[in-house]
Write a protein that binds this DNA or RNA. Structure first.
Length: 328
DNA sequence: AGGACAAGGTCAACATCATA
DNA sequence: TATGATGTTGACCTTGTCCT
């Protein structure tokens, strides 16, 4: 709390010049005495703040003093900026605070770093709502040097040569036009185009990368969040995967989400039970997942899945000697 | 000289945390 | 759980400067 206030105090003095302890106290919602102690702390820490007593007195920073965020190197500033995940801030009601904080960080950056910072949101996306693989998975191991090289190409807008191994395929070199980087739960993806076609590469499958001198072909304005959503939707609905609508006990949500390939939609019914639309690898996968949840979950659709679960339950009940009557 | 205003000093209350 | 150390804060008072 106090550290936050010290930063605010310096920023206030920077923006508005000389301010009295009374004014600062009002702005920071503390007593004047607390402001004076904070000034002491700043002074002891080396911030050149000085006091002028008397009728028009107050506190000022030494002319020309800037907050030393310029001491950040390029990657440090980058990390700070991408850490302010837009969606996370909105979720916690901090959207406007984050926006102003980011402006201050950009303002404090050296000129040479500002252009790169301004275009970050078009090239880096952290933890989007849509996940390609909802099953729990270990964090990807990607060599720092490879990620750093890919990041350089993405931020510089250069073409990239990567050695990539698709599933069950040998690794081979390919030249791509990077669009952006996305991280989801410890996994990283490179969004790119190759010969004009959309491609998504999992970073853990890239064993080497080289930035090429030529500029990448890239759309003028990129909404990375939207691009990611479109690609992940195509991925999830492709192949033989099947979608199911499930009504279930919220306490067992985690088990279903960990088992399913992806969660397409989720809402809570009036009685507190969850209604989830999830995808499974195939019919057998769906039957198995729902069977594990026993009476805590009900498949509402598709009908064949309901029929399959009913038949299985009837078989088990009959085997153990119960008199079974099935409606509909 | 005296009042107004602002910084600075002292003290006590309170909250938090570590330790016995 | 009780106790002490530590950090934070506000109230009250003193000191310094400026203006009338």
């Amino acid at each position: 709390m106090r550290a936050d206030r010290l930063v605010s105090l310096v920023l206030l003095l920077r923006q508005r010049g000389r301010l009295s302890a009374t004014t600062l106290a009002r702005e920071l919602e503390v007593s004047t005495r607390t402001v004076l102690r904070d000034i002491d702390a700043l002074s002891a820490a080396g911030v050149p703040v000085y006091a002028e007593r008397g009728r028009h007195g107050g506190f000022s920073l030494l002319p020309g003093f800037r907050t030393e965020l310029t001491g950040l190197n390029h990657d440090e500033a980058l990390a700070l900026l991408v850490a302010g995940s837009r969606r996370g801030a909105q979720a916690f009601g901090l959207g406007s605070a984050l926006a102003s904080a980011m402006l201050k960080v950009i303002d404090a950056l050296p000129e040479s770093h500002r252009d790169a910072a301004a275009g970050l949101s078009e090239r880096l996306l952290i933890d989007p709502e849509t996940d390609l693989l909802s099953r729990r998975a270990p964090a990807d191991e990607v060599p720092d040097a490879v990620v750093a090289e890919i990041r350089r190409a993405v931020l510089a807008g250069r073409r990239l040569r990567i050695r990539y191994a698709a599933v069950d395929r040998p690794a081979k070199w390919r030249t791509v036009d990077p669009i952006g980087l996305v991280t989801v739960r410890d996994r990283g993806y490179l969004l790119a185009t190759r010969s004009g076609a959309d491609r998504t590469y999992r970073l853990s499958r890239v064993s080497a990368a080289q930035t090429l001198p030529e500029a990448a072909r890239r759309p003028d304005r990129v909404d990375l969040d939207r691009t990611w959503r479109e690609r992940s939707t195509r991925f999830r609905t492709g192949g033989d995967q099947i979608a199911a609508l499930v009504r279930m006990d919220p306490l067992r949500r985690r088990e279903l989400v960990d088992t399913a390939l992806a969660v397409l939609d989720e809402e809570t019914d009036a009685d507190g039970r969850l209604r989830l639309e999830v995808t499974f690898q195939d019919a057998r996968h769906a039957e198995w997942a729902l069977w594990q949840l026993a009476t805590d979950a009900e498949a509402l659709a598709p009908q064949w899945l309901r029929d399959s679960l009913r038949d299985r339950a009837v078989t088990i009940a009959t085997r153990y000697g119960a008199a079974v009557s099935v409606d509909g």
